[in-house]
Design a protein around this nucleic acid. Structure first.
Lengths: 209, 209, 209, 209
DNA sequence: CATGAATGAGAGTTCATTCAT
DNA sequence: GATGAATGAACTCTCATTCAT
């Protein structure tokens, strides 16, 4: 078993090595302009090897998103499990979102590229299921947090999942729009303060009275 | 003059014909999988003809976004110019956003694809300038609307442009996320109610007291 | 008849106008990179009009060479007809070659491009015949000049046509090679002195004793 | 080492295989009408493979010329190094030129196509440098041969490099012109005797007294 | 397992030529 | 005759993917 396990671990490590390289390349060049050879070079592997670990370019790409989603899920679940009053939970949730962004500022944009477009349809069912699962679990966890606030009479009585969707939309919308602005205007990066203001408005907006 | 004018009009009509075809094809297949030949066929033209009206595939693509931005700009300016109390202006603004979405439900997603990625850098300076211009004018107009509310003591004292950015982020975030959900889950389309709820929260969030 | 004639003349003038424009464009860009649209623009005509005067791009191109050949032929015949001793005729011939070069320094290079390659096979029989005719007439005229020198015992007894071929080869070889050197090294233009030296050597080489 | 070396050799062999195929196709069709697919088929390879060995069509084309130049250089240097009286060296030089022609009768024409035109500007600096280098080295070596004759009082006192340029021009001029004649008239091939006569004239022309 | 040379389908784009006006 | 918008065949080149080693 020991040997088997070690092999498993090594295989997984190699996968991560590829994903990390792919992240760098995709972030720099975008999905289309990034070639498998670019990624192979970045990972110091040969192009053929990538196909031992990923069925094709699209699955490799999707795996990046999956990695973000895993991180998001962990962070949100963690907030969810802690015992604290709803207001503090919201704070913690917002904090978690900053961390998600910091975990991978560029790739979160690509994640939307992935979802808002062509790729999704060609993924293997298994990978697609994983993505769906993690998405809905994460949104579910966020919803649970809001539910707590509603039940304690703190928040307005809206459907918790709707609140979660809106919260996530606001977060990703701000990230995307600030990124767009930076590309267009090469302006200063206002992400953090804008996100803070957005969260304040959101919190006030869902708070009763 | 008559002949010249008629030619101008016909040229413009042809451009629109191509844009409409491109919109359909890009929306269905995404930027990469859509080929110029696909678009030419959809427009019932030959591939070469597309290049008489658009420098290359990327400029054609960018022109779609420009069209949305033009519509957005017109609608927002219109709201801006009307004489009514701030609360009603906000209502009108939200109404305008619904219309923007209805004007082109799919392509607004592609617009983000455009901005959040590789393409933007290869556009002709002129087109890029137009996009920048319309973007900032539109955001500016939205900001002016909020400014009215702030000055009349109705809204919290935040920087109007920041509010505009957040408002736009919220709108586009919801549109994108609902679209993503639809692709992943092939669920019912919750866009309209979610957008309504989001706007309500936002309005409450920026209203004083 | 008057009207007919005038039309003829105008048609010919238009042809020349196109040829002149084509010469400029071909000289600048070479055969392949020069487009019919380039030439049309240079001639201030529309692309379609070019086809009223030339069957296709290759015939237009060939017509340039024909023009050089016509000039060459006239000049050489002129030398031929004058009454003077052979030595002076050779001088006059060499002088004529300088003028041919000055008449069109760049296009003489293209002329070789034309002959040494692909185009020639697709010309209309008529044009091809004209080119053949002028070529052989010109070479023939040069040969006659040399023949005079041979008969007067001045030049070595070689076949006059062979001498003419070699003389022409030397001339065109020097023109081409000096042009090549200029492209490769962007050096000073040594054409005139090199041509002079080449002609001196040639003259000495065919002079008896 | 063994494996590495074998791979190197195979890579070089593949390059030569492509060059040989390209030579055939270019010679038959000329630069423009020859397509990369033609060449690939001739080489029994796929189009993509050509691009593993040559950056683009133009570089492939230029590489043919380089091959001639390499041969020219070797032959001329060889003559240069031998110890023999100047008259014999000139004979050997002329002999070498025949061999250069035999080495590749058709492509020498294309070489002029290359130099006398558009292509040269788009080559990679490295390749261009190699071409420049070999050209000037070869001309330099020819010049050295003539210099020997001048110093021994055998030849007229002209600049050796000028003599070399003229010699090379004469050679290539004859080759080109005889090829042109063959295309135009589909006549018998007079190259060898014409070249012989040309060289005789040239030799007489530079010999003192 | 890893390699990387080879593949070959397919893309974007150009441009000589045509033809309705 | 002149136009110039439209054509569409044909080109070069790219790159995801495969497979013999």
């Amino acid at each position: 078993m020991g040997i088997q396990e070690r092999k498993e671990r090594e295989k997984e490590r190699r996968r991560q090595q590829i994903i990390v390289a792919a992240k760098r390349v995709f972030s720099q060049k975008g999905f289309n302009k990034a070639t498998m050879e670019d990624i192979a070079k970045e990972a110091e592997l040969s192009p053929g090897t990538l196909y031992l670990y990923f069925k094709n370019k699209e699955e490799l790409y999707a795996s990046l998103s999956l990695r973000i989603l895993q991180y998001l899920h962990i962070r949100v679940e963690h907030v969810n499990k802690e015992v604290m009053p709803p207001e503090e939970k919201i704070d913690a949730l917002m904090e978690a979102m900053y961390d998600v962004y910091d975990f991978d500022p560029l790739i979160i944009i690509n994640m939307f590229h992935l979802q808002s477009s062509e790729t999704l349809k060609n993924l293997s069912p298994q990978l697609l299921t994983e993505i769906k699962d993690l998405s809905s679990k994460s949104i579910g966890a966020i919803a649970t947090i809001f539910e707590g606030g509603i039940q304690s009479g703190l928040f307005v009585e809206k459907h918790p999942t709707a609140l979660a969707d809106i919260f996530w939309s606001l977060f990703s919308g701000v990230v995307l729009w600030e990124a767009s602005k930076k590309i267009i205007n090469a302006e200063k990066d206002y992400l953090k303060p804008t996100l803070k203001a957005a969260f304040e408005i959101f919190r006030k907006g869902i708070t009763k009275g």
